[in-house]
Design a protein around this nucleic acid. Structure first.
Length: 227
DNA sequence: GCATTAAAGGACT
DNA sequence: AGTCCTTTAATGC
């Protein structure tokens, strides 16, 4: 596995010149991690940041009654805790690999050093965090005021914009996701998600295998329900 | 309008 | 074969 090439695929780092990339490479360690592994939990806090080189990771919280709320999905090229660990507060967040993955670790100190030396990376990090914040605002608002069908569409639009591939009016969602995952991201239940996915498929707003969303039809549905 | 429960079928390893 | 994922229907808030 070409470590350097994988590093250059980290979206935060892709603007780094080669020599800087090599420096980063020297202070990081890459490890293969099997699907379903908890790599971060409230009880085993790490003082490092993670670069997800390959695979998919889910960040989630667990309520006192044992229910999971998924905060974020991460795909190849993402850094975490972009959203959790890097903020000073120790948070009760779990990170679990959803597929077999390659994760590389970087100490917080090294990462901060990297930011100081490369203002462009800092700016890019702000951009990433800002757009994530915007997404979270949308999701929380939709949980307060919108129905489940709307929330599913909103989620798909967000995932699709971040991870998907566009071809005309159709966009792939771009991540491997179960109905339980969806439910845990929009504050719903698996069964209800199943019901509405069925409806959305009949209405031809989405397709499954592969999971795609028709952005035009989705937007129409937004407007109807916003009125 | 949706969660919950239950029950059963399908898919993955 | 066993676990995980999905679907469907009934019930009640």
């Amino acid at each position: 596995m070409d470590k350097l090439r994988l590093l250059s695929q980290i979206n935060l780092l892709d603007e780094l010149p080669e020599e800087e990339l090599k420096k980063v490479d020297e202070v990081t360690q890459t490890a293969p991690i099997k699907k379903g592994t908890i790599i971060l939990s409230p009880t085993q806090q790490m003082r490092s940041l993670f670069f997800l080189k390959k695979g998919q990771v889910r960040l989630f919280k667990v309520s006192s009654s044992g229910k999971e709320f998924t905060v974020d999905l991460l795909s190849e090229g993402n850094v975490f805790g972009e959203t959790s660990n890097f903020s000073l507060t120790e948070s009760d967040i779990y990170a679990e690999t959803m597929v077999d993955s390659f994760v590389c670790t970087l100490t917080k100190e090294r990462f901060e050093e990297l930011l100081r030396q490369n203002p462009d990376i800092s700016l890019k990090l702000i951009t990433i965090l800002t757009s994530k914040l915007k997404e979270m605002y949308q999701i929380t608002e939709s949980i307060a005021y919108k129905d489940v069908k709307y929330r599913i569409l909103l989620l798909f639009m967000q995932l699709s914009n971040r991870f998907g591939v566009r071809s005309g009016e159709w966009q792939t969602v771009g991540v491997k996701i179960t109905q339980h995952d969806i439910a845990s991201m929009i504050g719903s239940s698996r069964e209800t998600v199943s019901l509405f996915l069925g409806e959305l498929e009949k209405e031809q707003v989405i397709t499954r295998k592969p999971l795609k969303i028709n952005t035009v039809l989705a937007k129409e549905l937004y407007e109807v329900e916003e009125g």
